[in-house]
Design a binder for these strands. Structure first.
Lengths: 121, 121
DNA sequence: CAGGATCCGCCTCGATACTG
DNA sequence: CAGTATCGAGGCGGATCCTG
């Protein structure tokens, strides 16, 4: 069909625009960056432990959702150590480790990134 | 007071947690990354031109809000070439340029960042 | 313990109308 | 042209209840 009209396809997106926008939105979801960061410091964590490791009260519903997204995108592995009481362990994949490097370190060309403080209003 | 109880202060935030979270949320706001990216390619743009340069229909209300946030945080300069019809020009500051570098380039340790495709569901 | 199902309030954004 | 004011819809996440 006619593909000259812009601003319609948003998933198969248009000509110009920031490519990292999707990743940005992905990481900026509530708790997402904290989850990656926490997993980056612990090689492996159980659901409850991870939950408690986060800076503030996260609902199980959201933590579960985030972990599923991370798994879907290959950043996290979920290992079900069956049995009862239930025992599940999460850990970063190599890809996930790369994400963590981004969030934890600042040895990039934009190393002053950490210094950037965003004002709320 | 007692500051041993966690999960209360969110702006003056708690012990552990990803430091870049605020910046992430800032950049992930609707249109934000695209705006920075567009300004990064044009040294200076008028309100309307910028608006049209974005990949999709952005409301004036939101564009205005974003630009104000960018200005507040020192990423953008606003120059009011008074007169009528109104004429205003926006451009990136040096700080803003650094942001643009992040969004445009991928010569960082995580250069494969651009390759990361996020699945919606 | 590790989640799924529901309900529900808030916040964000888009659309529209108006102004200097 | 470059915005501001208002209204309304949608989604995102929190709280609560329930299960294997």
């Amino acid at each position: 069909m006619d593909e000259t009209l812009p601003g319609k396809s948003e998933t198969l997106d248009s000509p110009p625009g920031c490519q990292l926008d999707h990743l940005l939105k992905f990481l900026a979801q509530e708790w997402m960056s904290h989850i990656v960061w926490a997993l980056g410091r612990n090689t492996t964590m159980r659901f409850g432990a991870l939950r408690r490791a986060l800076p503030g009260p996260i609902s199980a519903r959201v933590l579960s959702a985030r972990l599923k997204e991370l798994e879907t995108n290959g950043f996290v592995v979920r290992r079900d150590i069956g049995a009862l009481p239930l025992h599940v362990e999460y850990s970063l994949t190599e890809q996930g480790g790369r994400l963590d490097a981004l969030l934890s370190r600042s040895e990039t060309p934009a190393q002053d990134l950490n210094l950037i403080q965003i004002k709320n209003s």
